[in-house]
């Protein structure tokens, strides 16, 4: 069964169409790049999948179920912004995730924090912006989830941090799960992607395996992206 299915998914904000009849199927065990320029509908699609927004029309299914309490048990979501409760310490944050997610691997999270020299007693509010983003990523990737939704995980970070983030994603995700990475920084993520979805103005422009795109067009995904979204 597909881990994510969208059929005719439409979302409007007033008169603005954010998603327009989107059809997507994501199979288990795939790393999918949700690629598109700013304002193309990537975040809206991810929010709909998380149940943070309600669709205007169409259907969205996660593991065959509509977004709700059950699907939230298997979806691990990294928002595009830092949103950790800043009064907590890193240790308390792990306790919080462990309390709510049965699939949270506390030892894995503690190991990743330790490798970054982040003390469990350190408060979130005393961490730099970059460290907070890494801690948030660690909490998300320390879950043995069925679907990881990563919204702009490498947006606005330096190249060294990008490498850390991508390595963390690749080394810690559950291999039987699917990972959807939303970004417009194609060159950095291309090497890890199995499948590619191009989205523009709320419509799917292209959905195919990354390898097929490279073979058929003789170009990298990044080059194809630049062609498709040429200003």
């Amino acid at each position: 069964m597909a881990v994510l299915t969208c059929r005719g998914l439409t979302k409007k904000f007033g008169s603005t169409v954010a998603l327009d009849g989107v059809d997507i199927t994501v199979e288990p065990g795939r790393i999918v790049g949700l690629l598109g320029p700013n304002g193309s509908g990537k975040t809206t699609l991810i929010k709909l999948t998380n149940g943070l927004l309600q669709p205007g029309a169409g259907e969205i299914l996660i593991d065959g179920k509509k977004p709700g309490v059950e699907t939230k048990r298997i979806v691990s979501y990294l928002p595009e912004r830092s949103c950790l409760p800043d009064w907590m310490t890193a240790g308390e944050l792990m306790g919080f995730y462990k309390d709510f997610y049965a699939d949270f691997d506390r030892d894995a999270a503690a190991g990743m924090l330790s490798r970054l020299s982040i003390e469990e007693k350190q408060k979130i509010k005393h961490m730099s912006k970059g460290t907070r983003e890494k801690v948030q990523l660690i909490m998300v990737m320390a879950r043995r989830a069925g679907l990881y939704l990563l919204d702009e995980p490498i947006g606005g970070v330096d190249p060294a941090a990008r490498d850390y983030i991508l390595n963390t994603i690749i080394s810690s995700y559950n291999p039987s799960a699917s990972v959807i990475i939303s970004t417009h920084l194609i060159a950095d993520v291309e090497k890890v992607l199995d499948d590619v979805i191009f989205i523009s103005c709320g419509k799917i422009m292209l959905a195919a395996p990354a390898e097929d795109i490279r073979e058929q067009r003789g170009k990298s995904v990044d080059e194809v992206f630049r062609e498709v979204f040429k200003c």
């Binding site: 998380n50 149940g51 943070l52 309490v69 059950e70 939230k72 048990r73 979806v75 979501y77 928002p79 912004r81 830092s82 949103c83 950790l84 409760p85 709510f100 997610y101």
Partner: peptide, 13 residues
Amino acid sequence: RDEGYIMHTLPVS
């Protein structure tokens, strides 16, 4: 606000 991204994606009603 921002913390809502965590709270509303917890598996609770």
